[in-house]
Design a protein around this nucleic acid. Structure first.
Length: 99
DNA sequence: AATACACCGCGTCATTGGTG
DNA sequence: CACCAATGACGCGGTGTATT
């Protein structure tokens, strides 16, 4: 991951040690005022939380897709087994008929 | 080696659905 | 109604692979 470093800070997650860049948006010179700082801090917090939420969301989505793929594999195997079973039962039936 | 293309993961924004 | 978490959509940069 390569972010530009114009105005912002490199922050590190508590767990995982992963680094990322948090941009700081200047808001018409109001950044120095407490209200401006507070707004900026709130924005950073929101971005940080959403960043983590997006990551988690993608992780869950991938896991879900894996589950679905697993299920497909299981059902395909079951289907094969049932087809085989049907085939052998048919053969058995035909044999008994000719006897 | 250079280029084109596909794929992936990421960060951000906008939207949505649930909750106090 | 305000707030928040989850998620879809978008654009971007990195990486691997095929083609020239």
């Amino acid at each position: 991951m390569t972010n530009s470093t114009a105005g912002g800070a490199i922050v590190q997650y508590a767990q995982g040690g992963q680094e990322f860049f948090v941009p700081v948006v200047a808001q018409s010179g109001s950044l120095s005022s407490p209200a401006g700082e507070d707004q900026a801090r709130k924005r950073e917090m929101r971005l940080l939380k959403n960043r983590e939420a997006a990551r988690e969301c993608r992780r869950k989505k991938k896991e879900y897709i894996k589950c679905l793929e697993n299920r497909v594999a299981v059902l395909e195997n079951q289907n094969k087994a049932l087809i085989d079973e049907l085939k052998s039962l048919k053969e058995l039936y035909c044999q008994q008929k000719t006897d």
